[in-house]
Design a protein around this nucleic acid. Structure first.
Lengths: 343, 343
DNA sequence: GTTGCAAACCAAAACGTTTTGGTTTAGACT
DNA sequence: AGTCTAAACCAAAACGTTTTGGTTTGCAAC
């Protein structure tokens, strides 16, 4: 008897123990500790004292079973966001999620997509086994079939960076269209007319949006859209360098390039410096994300800031609201432009 | 009846449902699905088929209650590691932890130290309520009283970066002494004789070790230890700059400085460049950690690499081993030196 | 035609809570 | 003296599993 972990046996006090010592029923202990009104003041104090003395901690497991809610939220992250370079974006969102969830009494359980694969379960099955109250979905590729199983299920979910809205599925994302507009406007205001664009891979919804934003912004500024000015990268440092090289050789009169991620912009910046191309002298560079790195490269990277911590908080609060009966919502956060040395 | 989340009611199939449809007892369903031998082949197939059809997923909650183990590991991180700059170190360790735990069927639950504070519980009480099977402790200040409550309790734990070893508490850390030796040896091999040291705050065990390592290495190289060559920072970018400034003004003949973290080294590097001090021309810089950033600053930062992902994996495996009855262990991982442009 | 044994199955207890639907007691009102 | 009500308490059911200690059946061995 007791809680078996390894060779050790932990024996946490149960409500029964408290009841016996206090000389009342378990019902009374439960109701006394949970603040119900049908227990006498004296009895309540007695129970509290005994519970304190025995160091009683109600089992979340037992409670979850009978209450039919676990107060746990699953965090579904794809490798895309949890790989070696994922931290720049992911970590801050995570902090926001955690802080807001903790404030509401929920715990966050990691369940990156390998967890499920390890156990040969679909994400949804995994969530069902663990009886999560809700799920946060993050960095999922549009072509991942399992993710839709989750977002379409009745399990309440909030998706980050894909605008999926249904009865049980809300989302949070940055206003990418406006972000691109800020970037292009800034470049044109500095006199640039030939502005290239290096996008992320097209399995990401944000890539679609940013391409659209780039086009819209050009139009707004009265510039023509030129397909040869667009390069499809994959968000990585390497593809940024490759993108700049490709665009420059195809368009020698290019004077500025907008990148769909800071990591790509930084890759391009390094490549340019190695090639003796001056930034911003020969070519100006604007990134997207405002990761911490962008402040520390030389020259500092001009970029579009995403409120990552706030995205986490918003997603968490949105999910909690759904769990309390609110409608699912889509929330779009405004970006800001941060002007540094590359423009 | 059913699982209540918000207004929605999810009704997962239970073992009872499967039993009824398959026309057997719940005992048989349980034993059939869990591979026991006292169930006929035909019955087993029948049960499996029905379970599949009804999409049955055994409740981890109910199972935890009766099995007296939750297959969950708590992750205790202090603000120190989960603040805005924490990701450089924390995220990789996290990945290692998660990957290794998932492989063993354990889930990782975030419980940064604010979680507990929010709920007015000690960390240990929080762990007890959630009935974690074990805990990973990370980035805790030496002077945090609650952490010792955890590591001294019978709850199996593995601490990262503090050498606490007892019956139920193991640890994983980098060989800081050797790391410092690598750094100092590298600097002396380049002819430096006056080598300063900017340490982290002294509430961190790693700071103590790195100071010791710095001293030992000087001695090994036949150089005298000079207290005025040591500055106590706090691991932050700002304190790195302040450290370099202070050391330089107190010791004009300084030619190299070793920093206890990359973040501080980078702060110093930026400050130096702003002041027109050439790196590595006027002063050489070595950091510690090898965070991703250190590769991208200009010039690239020479630093001591910590195997962060491996630390996570090692800690996780160590904890799992303890849960299976092994002794708690202390494991020390070797550092490497990464030579880049600042030396 | 017992006895013994293995194979296949099952009823019930246990895990630690919350909640439902009571019962008991004491005092107030007729 | 009887009825009603409110306050204080409690027994038992429920949650969904695993496990213990069986029982039943059929067949081989004597």
């Amino acid at each position: 008897m007791g809680f078996q972990v390894g060779e050790v046996i932990l024996i946490p006090t149960t409500i029964k123990d408290v009841a016996e010592v206090a000389g009342v029923s378990v019902t009374t202990v439960s109701r006394a500790l949970n603040g119900y009104s049908d227990v006498g003041e004296e009895t309540r104090r007695k129970v509290q004292k005994v519970a304190e003395e025995l160091n009683y901690r109600p089992s979340a497991v037992a409670r979850s079973l009978v209450m039919k809610r676990t107060k746990t939220i699953g965090l579904l992250i794809s490798e895309m966001m949890s790989d070696k370079s994922g931290h720049h974006f992911t970590f801050e969102v995570l902090r926001g999620l955690h802080d807001a969830l903790a404030k509401n009494g929920y715990d966050l359980i990691f369940a990156n997509t390998t967890t499920a694969k390890q156990r040969l379960l679909s994400y949804l099955d995994f969530c069902t086994e663990r009886r999560f109250d809700g799920v946060i979905v993050m960095g999922i590729r549009l072509d991942d079939p399992y993710v839709h199983e989750v977002t379409e299920s009745p399990l309440p979910s909030v998706v980050i960076d894909i605008p999926l809205l249904s009865k049980h599925c809300g989302y949070v994302m940055t206003d990418n269209i406006h972000g691109c507009e800020l970037a292009i406007q800034h470049l044109t205001s500095r006199g640039h007319r030939n502005i290239g664009f290096v996008n992320g891979h097209k399995e990401a919804e944000v890539s679609r949006q940013r391409l659209r934003g780039y086009k819209d912004a050009l139009e707004k500024c009265g510039l023509p859209f030129e397909p040869s000015l667009v390069y499809e990268g994959d968000f990585s440092v390497e593809s940024g360098a490759a993108g700049l090289e490709a665009l420059l050789s195809a368009n020698p009169d290019l004077t500025a390039v907008f990148f769909a991620s800071d990591l790509m912009a930084i890759g391009a910046l390094r490549w340019a410096q190695q090639q003796g191309i001056k930034v911003p002298g020969d070519v100006s560079i604007v990134g997207f994300d405002n990761i911490e790195l962008s402040e520390y490269v030389t020259p500092g990277l001009t970029t579009i800031h995403q409120r990552r911590y706030e995205m986490g908080v918003t997603a968490a609060n949105s999910l909690v609201a759904m769990l309390e009966g609110d409608m699912a919502q889509g929330r779009v956060l405004p970006p800001d432009i941060v002007i540094r040395g590359t423009t």
